[in-house]
Amino acid sequence: MELDLDESSLAIGRIERALSRIEKSLADRANRPESAAAAVPADQSALKAEVAAVIGELDRLIAEADRG
């Protein structure tokens, strides 16, 4: 599969929109006091692990971009 600049821009746009969705969801939860009820611990651990993995991958990509 060969990708060009337009496709990478589309990927970045998708990432930005997904981050906006996460940000909005967190803001909505913060405005709902009753939502403080805990998520299922196992789900939360998996979510934390996935967040850490994605951020690690982003760090790697950004480091590569910095190196040119």
Partner: peptide, 22 residues
């Protein structure tokens, strides 16, 4: 890197769906 960006987009979109379903 472009492929990695697409994969990250997939994963972050999945994360957004999970966060929205919390």
């Amino acid at each position: 890197n472009n492929r990695a960006l697409l994969q990250i987009a997939d994963r972050i979109e999945a994360l957004a769906a999970k966060v929205e379903q919390l």
